[in-house]
């Protein structure tokens, strides 16, 4: 099955936007999302192909509308739930709790 990630040869995706002196990460959360993916990968519950496959399950419209490390985050959540390391309910509960506590 093909998918939105299989981009080789697609038309109409626009010009290439190359940033001068690009930083390794653009936001603090990207650092954490990257490191969490790596560290969780070291648990040995999945391999690199499984983590890429998980990211590829993102709905196509969402995939195109989100950034690279958002793909990583989405895939990581999916794998953690699939492997039973976290439940969907506890992730959503923690997100809601942090949203409540967040400074406004």
């Amino acid at each position: 099955m093909n998918g939105i990630h299989d981009m080789g040869g697609m038309h109409g995706l626009g010009p290439i936007d190359r940033e001068e002196n690009e930083p390794v990460f653009h936001h603090a959360w990207e650092r954490r999302a990257f490191a969490l993916n790596m560290a969780a990968g070291f648990l040995g519950e999945w391999n690199i192909d499984m983590s890429r496959y998980a990211r590829e399950q993102m709905p196509p419209a969402e995939y195109l509308a989100t950034s690279y490390y958002e793909h990583w985050l989405w895939g990581l959540e999916r794998l953690l739930v699939e492997k039973g390391l976290l439940t969907r309910a506890e992730i959503e509960a923690r997100v809601a709790e942090l949203r409540r506590l967040a400074p406004r």
Binding site: R32, A33, A39, L73, L86, I91, V95, L98, R99
Partner: peptide
């Protein structure tokens, strides 16, 4: 997105 990253990190 920031909330979700923090949630995952704190739980893990």
């Amino acid at each position: 997105t920031e909330l979700r990253v923090r949630a995952l990190e704190s739980l893990l």
